[in-house]
Amino acid sequence: MMMEPALAINSLSLSIRGKPILRGVSANVGAGEVWSIIGPNGAGKSTLLKCLMRIHGGWTGKVLLRGRDLAVFSQRELARQVAYVPQAGGNQAFPFTVREYVRLGRYAWSGFFGSPHPEDATRVENAIERTDIGGLAQRTLDTLSGGERQKVFLAAALAQGSGLLLLDEPAAFLDYRHQAEVAALIRRLNQDCGVTIVSVTHDVNAALQAGGQVLALRDGEAVWNGRADDLADANVLQSIFETDFRFLEDPSTGLRLVVPQGERISA
């Protein structure tokens, strides 16, 4: 028997003020899979996530979430199934503490007049523990570093208790240590908790290291879809990014990583 895909996207298109942003994007994301969406700047990667979370409306096409049409979900029902971590950055007007912020992730489960759900406290503590931010719980968000903040954002999405996680550039602007920590955290969420991951990145190496499936967008169109292992191919990458790449092999894992072909390297 075929497993129902966690997310089936069927020719999703979006135009903003007559300008096409997404053109007939289709993909089938299986439950428990890891997907990376790559592509050059302005390809529509972040917009695609926002359409799936219904932050952007007005798109056409059909999206099935575990077999059910996305259009019939209420926003609250949707948030119980899908969590979204926006691109980091942006100042907070009013500084919540880390614990308060993680607790905001429980909104979709709150009842009449915002009454709390019985599992709220355990879910929040669990998310804080899993993301290893217990030491920050009483700090306010504006006092954290970018890497710490990204972990808090992940914790809040985790507290939401959804089986599908949409991540927008989870490692952008982070230093190497925090990049590695966040990547490891995402891997654990996938492997230990069975969370399906759809992650937008502009970094081909991040997609290669994440493994799983890759969807490449260019000018709003899905130009390539396949396994991450098959992405390390000069012609494929050239067709996505319109620039040349060289490959290096990581001696410890045998994983092929890419270096964009700049003038200095080719000299």
Binding site: K50, I55, S74, Q75, R76, V82, Y101, Y107, F113
Partner: peptide, 25 residues
Amino acid sequence: LASLAGELNLLSVSEDLAASRGVAV
């Protein structure tokens, strides 16, 4: 407003985030 306290919390962070947490913005 009392019935919207949870929504106000999320809207005070960002509208995109509020929508992603399940607020009908």
